[in-house]
Every structure is written in structure tokens, then in C-alpha cells.
């Protein structure tokens, strides 16, 4: 398969080619930056699956060991919850 056929983030249609472009042409060096500039990792999985893939690609492309890379910030909520459910929470429940 070609790089532009390998999907990395399905929510934003981000392919391997897009991630490589972000690294080499835009000079981005971390999952955090790629998330902000390309939105990969901002969709439903919130980076829980695609984030690891992106880390691996950066580590391979820039020759940084995977262990040395800063993990992306994980943000709450851990799972998507509706506005109504959040709103209905009462102190003491």
C-alpha cells in the first residue's frame, strides 16, 4: 500500500503520507504538535489508538528512540459522554 492509502487517524482522514508531510515539510516533532496542527488524535479515540501510531512514525522518521518521546497529554473525559449526562450530575450523587 502507498503512504497515502494507509489511514492513521480515521476521524480526520489522516494518512501516513500526511504524518510524514507534517514531520518533514512542517517540521513538527511531537504527537502534541501534530495533533494541534493536523487534528490527528482530536477525534473520537482522542489519540488512544492513533497517538501510538503517530509516535512510532515520528520515532522512525526522525530516528528518536520511541522510549525517549514525550507521551501526548491525555485529556478528560476518558470516554465521550453527552452534555446531558454531564449536566445532570449533582453534588452528592
Amino acid at each position: 500500500m502507498k503512504d497515502d492509502q494507509i489511514i492513521i487517524c480515521r476521524c480526520e482522514d489522516g494518512t501516513l503520507a500526511d504524518v510524514k508531510d507534517a514531520i518533514h515539510r512542517l517540521g513538527l516533532r511531537s504527537v502534541e504538535e501534530i495533533k494541534r496542527v493536523k487534528r490527528f488524535g482530536m477525534g473520537h479515540c482522542q489519540g488512544k489508538t492513533c497517538g501510538k501510531l503517530i509516535s512510532q512514525i515520528i520515532s522512525r522518521e526522525l530516528n528518536i528512540s520511541y522510549e525517549d518521546m514525550a507521551p501526548a497529554t491525555t485529556r478528560q473525559p476518558a470516554k465521550a459522554v453527552s452534555v446531558k449526562e454531564f449536566a445532570s450530575y449533582q453534588e452528592g450523587n
Binding site: 482530536m42 477525534g43 473520537h44 482522542q46 485529556r75 478528560q76 473525559p77 465521550a80 459522554v81 453527552s82 452534555v83 446531558k84 454531564f86 449536566a87 450530575y89
Partner: peptide, 23 residues
């Protein structure tokens, strides 16, 4: 998240079934 969802739903009731993905 609790407060803003309460207020948000009051101002715009159609938001109620939409999921919050990140804060």
C-alpha cells in the same frame, strides 16, 4: 464540565445528546 454543560444546555437545548470529547 458539569457547570458549563448545565448552562450550555439551558441556552441551547439541542446540545443535550451531543458528546463531549475533550476538555
Amino acid at each position: 464540565i458539569n457547570q458549563v454543560c448545565k448552562k450550555g444546555m439551558k441556552i441551547m437545548p439541542v446540545l443535550e445528546n451531543i458528546s463531549v470529547v475533550r476538555q
